[in-house]
Computed example of a mutant assay.
Amino acid sequence: MFMTEGWLAVFESRQRGPCADRALVLTSLSIAHEIVEAAGLWQLLVAETDLHRARHELWLYEQENKPTRRRPSATVVSNHNPWPGVAGYIVTVCVVAWLAGNGAFGHNWLEAGRVDGALIRDGEWWRVITALTLHKDVGHLLGNLGFGGLFGLLAARVIGSGVTWLTVTVAAATANALNTIMLIPSHRSIGASTAVFAALGLVAGFVWRGRLMAQDRWPYRLGPIIGGIALLAYTGTGDESTDIGAHLGGFVCGFAGGFLLTRAAAVFERASVQWLCGAAAPLLVVVAWWLALSGH
């Protein structure tokens, strides 16, 4: 450390810029200082009597101006094609709506497929899946098509269509099952909204756990969770006919699914895995409806 008589170096660098930045701090505090260069090393000097105060003030300055460190993403992020899954979701829901509306095959699809707490408890587990494809009217159908397509699109871009929609189907069915267990046996419900909020939770959980928006500051770390809860509160609560428990359950189960999927990101990057999952999702719906209609 270089010194001149009565002055000591409080900071040194191989470049003048860092010394100049800290000199501004000392100037604002009326601490006398000088920048000198010797043997290729720049030094910021202060009087010996001001040394401890200057060191403390510069330490505070450095604490307040630490560079933001971006943590590495825990997942492999690819730009998957999300449209096949969205198209499959829209076609599935619309086909079931048309079949149910026309009483296809001589069945009452609403009675055969809706969530019915008593019947699910008696073993008709397929209702937690079939109910996801039923709607009370056109407005109900269009709302779920729009929001479900949007949230599914966002999830499928980073996770892939096949894995996304299989996860959404399983998460939404799980949410319907849990909701049925917690409510009275006479509880009944229909609608894809549980799947819609499972897709929203899936995005939030995957992005948060995968640290795709990672920053050291807590607002950035919690951003995906806060955003997901805000959308849930805004779109998932309505009039007295809204099944808030199913919406919340869908979001929580979807979030858990996204959380777990970050552990298998390298696996679902494979096209074969996406195709298998993409085939399994509608197959679950078909099997559930076959069981529902054959036993009704």
Rank of each mutant, 00 (worst) to 15 (best):
A104C: 06
L41P: 08
N81R: 06
E124L: 10
G236D: 09
A214W: 13
L166W: 00
S272F: 08
S161I: 00
N102F: 12
F251Y: 15
I35F: 09
I184L: 12
G152E: 05
G139K: 08
P82Q: 05
R70I: 15
L29I: 10
G139S: 14
L261N: 07
G117P: 02
A177Q: 06
V207L: 05
A271W: 06
E111F: 07
R71T: 12
F2V: 07
G210C: 04
G123M: 06
I35L: 07
I190H: 01
R16A: 08
P18G: 02
V158F: 13
L29F: 05
C19P: 03
W289K: 05
V285C: 13
A214H: 14
T130P: 01
W218P: 12
H296A: 15
G162F: 03
L141D: 03
A177H: 04
G236F: 04
T237R: 13
I184Y: 11
A100L: 01
H135S: 08
A204K: 02
G149S: 07
E5N: 03
N179S: 12
I184R: 11
Y61H: 11
W59K: 15
G236P: 03
V86S: 07
L284W: 01
A256W: 07
L153C: 14
I120Q: 00
A118R: 14
W290H: 06
V267P: 10
T262P: 00
P18C: 00
H296T: 09
A173V: 10
A100D: 00
W7T: 05
P67N: 10
G210E: 00
L24Y: 14
P84C: 06
M3P: 01
R69E: 12
M213G: 13
C19Q: 02
R270T: 01
M1E: 12
L150C: 05
W218K: 08
T27I: 13
I190M: 11
W7R: 14
W126D: 07
T4N: 07
V46S: 02
R221T: 03
G6F: 01
Q63K: 11
L60Q: 15
A100P: 00
T133F: 06
A172S: 15
H56C: 08
R221Y: 02
D50I: 08
N108A: 04
I31E: 09
N79W: 12
V91R: 02
A199L: 01
I120K: 01
I159K: 02
V86H: 07
